[in-house]
Each structure stands twice: as C-alpha cells, then as structure tokens.
Computed example of a mutant assay.
Amino acid sequence: MIKSYHAEHTCIMSKKNTEATSNWIAKKLVSVLKDHPKMTSKGIVVEMLKFGVNPSKMQVYRARQKAFEEIEGSYGASYAKLPKYAELVRNHNPGSICKIHCDLPNLIMKEPRFLRIFISFKAQKDGFQAGCRPFIGFDGCHLKDLLVVFF
C-alpha cells in the first residue's frame, strides 16, 4: 500500500554506466560509422549520450577500433585472401604474372607472413613491349675502346 507519493525526483543521476562495455558501444556505432567514418571521439561521446552512457576515452578508442574492424574487416583476414586473388588473376587473365612472397614458417610462426606481391597483367606487358623501341645496352664496359658496328 502506497501511503505517500512525491512526484519530484531529487536524487542525482550519474551518466557513468559500468555495464556499457566497448563491445556494446561498438555494436551501436557500426551503423553510425558507416555513414560518418570520420567521426571524432567527441562525436562518439555525444552519440552515446543518446543512450544515457558517458564512456571513458579508452572505451571510445576501443569501441571505434572494434566498429571499424566490423565494417572493414581485419588486416589478417584480408592478407589471407591474397593467394585466392592471385589464383583468380592467373585463371581469368591468362599470361599474367602474379607472385606472392612470404616468410617461410618456422617453429615460432605457425602461418607464413606476407612480405610483398607482384602483379603484371598481360595487357600491360604487351602494351609496354609494343610501345618500346628496341635498344642495345652495355653495362660495365668502356665505350671509347669499343668499336660497335650497327647494320
């Protein structure tokens, strides 16, 4: 049984919410950061105030990193797709060259580490060869002592 009711609320409301983790904040930020990828940390704090949460700077930093990883994917997953991409280039563009150089795995590294990739499409190679004039080059010889006859 309610004996008295006071309509005015007098306690102080705290915006610090310990239940709001960087994972939860990241889930809320994904849709916002897709539209505004250059949003600053102050903008993220303002966005979170709509949910009644005042996150710390570190929470904002971690949440932003996690949200971008959700949107764009991780670097490791992208590098793992390179061999498949190289195979597709070779299959769909015959005559092209696609080489990937990686560190060889050892006891410490379980997977090879990407170093560099070289791609030369057949059309580029043919265009370069068709557009270049042939030339004769000498390397490491003294031209004043050499008699070269061109026919």
Rank of each mutant, 00 (worst) to 15 (best):
S120A: 08
V53G: 01
G140N: 02
H101Q: 10
C102A: 03
N91C: 09
T40N: 03
F121Q: 09
Q65G: 05
H6N: 13
L33P: 03
I25P: 01
S22D: 12
L147E: 13
V148Y: 10
V45T: 11
P55F: 00
K110L: 00
Y61N: 09
R90W: 07
K28Q: 12
Y75K: 10
I108F: 00
F138W: 06
I97Y: 13
L49A: 15
K38P: 02
R116F: 09
H9S: 09
Y79K: 09
F128A: 05
P134T: 14
V148H: 11
A130D: 14
L49K: 03
I71R: 00
V32H: 11
K99F: 03
L115N: 08
K15M: 15
E69W: 02
G127H: 14
R90N: 14
K57P: 06
M109G: 00
I44M: 13
S31N: 15
K110D: 05
Q124V: 07
G43A: 09
G76K: 03
N91H: 10
F68D: 03
R90T: 12
V45S: 11
M39Y: 00
G52E: 05
F150S: 05
T40V: 15
T21L: 06
Y5L: 07
L82V: 02
K99N: 15
S22F: 09
L29S: 09
F138Y: 07
H142Q: 11
Y75M: 08
L104W: 05
E19G: 13
P94G: 13
K15A: 13
P94W: 11
G140Q: 01
K3P: 04
F118P: 06
L107Y: 10
I44G: 10
F150A: 05
Q129I: 13
T10S: 15
R64S: 14
D103S: 10
Q59G: 06
V30Q: 03
P134R: 09
A63E: 01
A26Y: 05
Y5R: 01
L146H: 07
F68C: 03
D126M: 06
P134E: 09
F121N: 07
V46T: 12
F121P: 01
L146P: 01
K3H: 02
C141V: 12
G127D: 12
I71Q: 02
L107W: 12
G52V: 13
K110F: 02
I44S: 08
V60C: 13
F150H: 14
G131R: 13
F128E: 12
I97D: 11
R62I: 13
G140V: 03
